[in-house]
Design a protein around this nucleic acid. Structure first.
Length: 399
DNA sequence: TCTGGGGTCCTAGGACCC
DNA sequence: TCTGGGGTCCTAGGACCC
């Protein structure tokens, strides 16, 4: 009986932000291009392969990237556009199989096990998908094919740029063991350092360690997980419909915020953006988290669980202020301020109407509708409008 | 070189309940 | 009067991913 023994595709767009920019500006083809925050505290979000050859990579401080590759073209990110293109690429995946699990804006797992009667081989499906994305959107994508998710993901990395890599069932260990342990999904800087402390450099050396030693050194979950991955074991299935567990907004300021008023205004703007995103998703939050990073990069969070879920700007701002009051600032400047929502549930979950705010809530929703039509800046709370000059203006009534 | 913004998951301690 | 074990929830911090 014909059946796919490697039914999992990992589709990963190559230098996604850069390639989307090149669609609009073909003159950028062949040049080193770097997309990211251009301010003095920016980092690289995406680098073209030409820029990567100079050592530039994502998450690198932009100042460093400029030094490594001064002749690159530097562009600010256009996330709205990337989201739109991403939506269309995922729609192409949906044409192939209903079992699509988005991992981020530019990558997804597809389970094509159900296609086995229609296609001779998973590689034919992968190549057709790459061609389809190229023809429909003009974008390069790499595909990894394997029996498990994490081998498929490693395979797509191996395939880059603009390629396909198939790891036949039974050959996983040969594929894995020569690799640096750092390449495993879940081995970051900290775990890598600990593994080096154990004398581990490759996945093969990791596989040779006793499982209980890994659990003792890395914790129950991470240790057991890595022990399995090192032998190619990964039972996770492709999951569709994974509901969001948190929504958050944060901002790093060009210069640290120092005055109480400026910090409070920033907090209120966060409450507005967060509330708007919750309401657009039809969600309300039971728990609110405030995040604060000081100029010296020390970072603190404070969170609270409310008696009932909230989605209104006023409620979010009030919770944020209460949390802010619990942090000792001691005159330190604020580099980053963030506000997050967890404990999400549908805003329509049975809650008595009487509890759902009054006129304030209606105003919020009216403002949302105006912004839907005229843009984010169409409605600005009076408290965020710059005050006219010093002293009262006798000719002006508050409106 | 000096460190973004959006997420997920895990750990550990404490409160609280049975 | 002293002491259990287990489960769940909450909070803060940290690792990790793209």
């Amino acid at each position: 009986m014909d059946r796919f023994t490697e039914p999992i595709l990992h589709v990963d767009m190559d230098a996604f932000f850069v390639e989307v920019e090149r669609l609009r500006r073909p003159e950028l083809r062949g040049l080193p291009v770097i997309v990211g925050g251009l301010g003095n505290r920016g980092v690289v979000a995406a680098a073209s392969y030409e820029a990567r050859r100079h050592g530039v990579h994502s998450a690198m401080p932009m100042a460093h990237a400029r030094r490594l590759c001064p002749h690159a073209r530097f562009l600010p990110p256009d996330h709205a556009r990337y989201r739109e293109v991403s939506r269309r690429v995922f729609a192409l995946l949906d044409e192939v199989t209903p079992l699509v699990e988005p991992l981020s804006i530019d990558e997804a797992f597809c389970d094509i096990g159900g296609l086995r009667l229609l296609h001779p081989h998973p590689v034919a499906v992968g190549e057709a998908l790459r061609r389809r994305i190229r023809e429909a959107e003009g974008l390069p994508a790499s595909v990894g094919i394997a029996a498990t998710k994490f081998i498929a993901k490693l395979a797509s990395e191996e395939a880059k740029p603009d390629g396909l890599c198939h790891v036949p069932a039974g050959t996983e260990v040969d594929f894995l063991h020569p690799m640096p342990a750092r390449r495993l999904w879940g081995v970051g800087e900290a775990t890598h350092a600990r593994l080096e402390g154990l004398g581990v450099r490759t996945v093969g050396e990791l596989a040779a360690l006793p499982r209980d030693l890994l659990v003792r050194r890395l914790g129950e979950a991470a240790g057991a997980h890595l022990a399995d991955l090192a032998w190619g074991r990964d039972p996770r299935r492709v999951e569709t419909d994974t509901a969001a567990k948190s929504v958050s907004v944060e901002e790093t300021y060009e210069r640290d915020l120092t005055g109480e008023e400026g910090i409070d205004a920033a907090l209120f703007r966060h409450a507005e953006r967060l509330g708007r995103r919750l309401r657009a998703a039809g969600l309300a939050a039971r728990s609110i988290t405030l995040k604060l990073r000081f100029g010296d990069f020390t970072t603190f969070t404070r969170s609270t669980t409310l008696p009932r879920p909230v989605d209104g700007t006023g409620d979010l701002a009030a919770a944020g202020r209460a949390l802010l009051a619990r942090l000792e600032r001691r005159g330190r400047g604020v580099r980053l301020l963030g506000l997050g929502a967890t404990g999400l549930e549908p805003a329509d979950a049975p809650r008595q109407l009487a509890l759902r705010g009054g006129a304030g809530e209606e105003l919020t929703r009216a403002a949302d509708r105006v912004r839907d039509r005229f843009g984010e800046d169409a409605v600005v709370p009076a408290r965020l409008v710059p005050r006219p000059g010093p002293g009262p203006d006798p000719g002006r009534k508050d409106t």
